[in-house]
Design a binder for these strands. Structure first.
Lengths: 225, 225
DNA sequence: GCGAATTAGTAACAATTCGCTAATAAAGTC
DNA sequence: GACTTTATTAGCGAATTGTTACTAATTCGC
């Protein structure tokens, strides 16, 4: 039998490449995504807004290009950046997602940040990329402590819970949240407190990852689907 | 302030593209990956084995190309195939992972299937791709019932558990596994039994996904890392 | 035939975890 | 000082999990 595996190889093909970045930031009670003014000169002229995007420059890697694109678009380096997926089609598009701590009145016009519930007319491709980015981001939240990337070094537990709720898109129960958090030993208390207007002052905590983690348990079939 | 986001755009750049597929199959007590004889004509000639790979052909999409590459390499279409990650570098490589139900004495030379514990000398890139594919596969196992793709329509619970153990790379407790499984209602019993040599015959089950799933619960901080 | 070995399947118990309610604490407001 | 607001923790009942041990049905050796 001929070896189809290698005999079927064709000469490397070149494709046009784009790297798109879905930057997310907390904005009130929802996440906002950074949109740039679209190419007005385009033929159809329908897409007024697009995701920050560029192609590779020089000898930079994909991660480096994504970091550069994110930095140029947001005015500062994102505190977390990771690849979400690659879409084929007319041109190859590698989609990244990133987290930006607080864009309110930052270096860039805050009008570029658009809440996820009020997205303007976007191309199908861009809307799909945002979906993919959200899915990848939520998968990371469950496996990696990226929520802390959206907070300063010292934060209150209410702030931390609010970030988790934003990222996951659902409410969490306060007592349960804190119990799980304390059991995980991901944070440690400082001796500082912060009074935020009315109500009892909240103690400040800092992120303090444990040396070794616990072993994971059985299969959670209820998470399947 | 000038709009750096769009003014910094450069003209789309072309790169060479490769699509690599990490095909996995059960093989005794571990998973095996499909390796093809490497390009002997290469300059260094070090890499004797490579992953099935090709570039895009015609107007096919990434997914279609990966399916074609997998089919050509394994002799049959994989029962599951999904994108793992994209690696940059000299050429852009989109890595897919796939599951193949049972390659024992199948259409292709079974010598191509190599157990994960006995991988031959591979390029750094290929080894990295296998790592990435395993990570993506295990993330999928937790969220999607892909384990059933490695089994025939009717299977015993011991077989199902063995598949989960292979995919996750760790042992599971029998009683807990079955309790979770029954609670999930992912399988339904048939009225058939199978006697596998010695020991009590096992009842056969079939995959029967429930109409609606349960809501997911709080954060599992113990899974972070 | 009969007991040992082997594999399948389940019951039951203890410990842990989870979702929730309620209690207490410490501030500001009137 | 009473009332409101936010933070924090205690505690309870229910559900889940990890484990051991038991029962069931078959083959193997004699």
């Amino acid at each position: 039998m001929p070896d189809r595996t290698s005999s079927s190889r064709t000469t490397p093909r070149t494709v046009t490449l784009a790297i798109d970045v879905v930057l997310l930031t907390p904005r009130g009670s929802e996440l906002a995504v950074l949109l740039a003014p679209g190419d007005v000169g385009k033929a159809r002229g329908r897409e007024r807004w697009t995701l920050p995007s560029d192609t590779l420059r020089g000898e930079e890697s994909l991660d480096e290009a994504a970091a550069r694109i994110a930095r140029d678009a947001a005015g500062a380096a994102p505190s977390f950046l990771d690849q979400a997926a690659t879409l084929g089609g007319a041109q190859l598009t590698v989609t990244y997602f990133g987290l930006v701590p607080d864009a309110g009145g930052g270096a860039r016009r805050s009008a570029d940040w658009v809440g996820l519930s009020e997205l303007p007319a976007l191309g199908v491709r861009h809307r799909e990329e945002i979906e993919v980015a959200m899915t990848a981001m939520r998968a990371r939240v469950d496996q990696h402590p990226i929520a802390f990337r959206l907070l300063p070094a010292a934060f209150t537990l209410s702030e931390l819970q609010a970030v988790y709720e934003l990222l996951l898109g659902r409410r969490l129960h306060k007592a349960s949240f804190r119990r799980s958090l304390h059991a995980s030993a991901l944070v440690e208390a400082t001796d500082e407190w912060r009074s935020e207007g009315r109500g009892r002052p909240a103690q400040l905590f800092r992120y303090a990852p444990p040396r070794r983690r616990r072993q994971r348990r059985g299969i959670r079939f209820d998470l399947l689907g």
